[in-house]
């Protein structure tokens, strides 16, 4: 189930609806999708790169590739847009490592202008990444029981015994749910192209 509140985009439509509207030519719809998910994607990329410039470059290419996909009427729209977006980000990251530079193919395909970065931009990126709580994005990817187990264990650092008591189940079940949550995330990250 998608969360529609991240980053305060002010649009009540679901991610799927926004992407469908984008395909119909609604530019503001993609703007809303971008505002909703940009911090998540930026955080994901920044924590895997050495500097904010590279993360910003990858962010632009990630959203451009996502937009190119949405505008291609022959391509199906993603079932889970947030996981799909992170998968694109991950692939762009790996491509960057392999090729030795961040690709600009999607931006060129769309005729987008290169964007220069100022010191204030870099500061904003670092601030956003530092403030971002990934809990909400996890919630959009996981069933409720797995989400609860994962966040209590990982984000709140509770013991398995305590979580088991809170969730009315055994420690083994908590471990299994956390494990399944991680497997789900891993599967969604790797399984969607």
């Amino acid at each position: 189930m998608e969360s529609n509140t991240q980053d305060g985009d002010g649009d009540a439509r679901s991610d799927m609806d926004l992407l469908a509207a984008t395909r119909g030519g609604d530019a503001h719809a993609f703007g809303a999708f971008y505002r909703r998910r940009r911090v998540l994607a930026l955080t994901y990329l920044r924590r895997r790169t050495t500097d904010p410039e590279t993360a910003a470059d990858l962010l632009a290419e990630t959203f451009a590739a996502a937009l190119a996909h949405v505008l291609d009427g022959d391509q199906p729209l993603p079932e889970t847009p947030v996981a799909w977006l992170l998968t694109i980000a991950r692939n762009k990251l790996i491509d960057g490592w392999r090729r030795g530079r961040v690709e600009a193919a999607a931006r060129e395909q769309l005729g987008m202008q290169p964007l220069s970065l100022r010191d204030s931009d870099l500061g904003e990126i670092e601030r956003l990444v530092a403030e971002t709580d990934l809990r909400e994005s996890l919630a959009s990817l996981l069933p409720a029981d797995q989400m609860q187990a994962l966040t209590e264990r990982v984000l709140e650092d509770r013991s398995y015994t305590e979580i088991a008591r809170r969730m009315d189940c055994s420690e083994a079940v908590v471990r299994k749910r956390v494990s399944r949550a991680l497997a789900t995330l891993r599967g969604r990250m790797e399984g969607l192209a």
């Binding site: 984008t22 030519g25 609604d26 530019a27 503001h28 993609f30 703007g31 971008y34 505002r35 940009r38 930026l42 910003a56 962010l59 632009a60 959203f63 451009a64 937009l67 505008l71 769309l110 005729g111 987008m112 202008q113 964007l115 970065l117 100022r118 204030s120 931009d121 904003e124 990126i125």
Partner: peptide, 22 residues
């Protein structure tokens, strides 16, 4: 405007260009 805002404008402009081309 910040980089993030300028990127948003670029993306929206790309959608409009495609729609006009279509």
């Amino acid at each position: 405007s910040s980089f993030l805002d300028r990127l948003e404008m670029e993306l929206e402009a790309a959608v409009r260009r495609r729609a006009n081309e279509a």
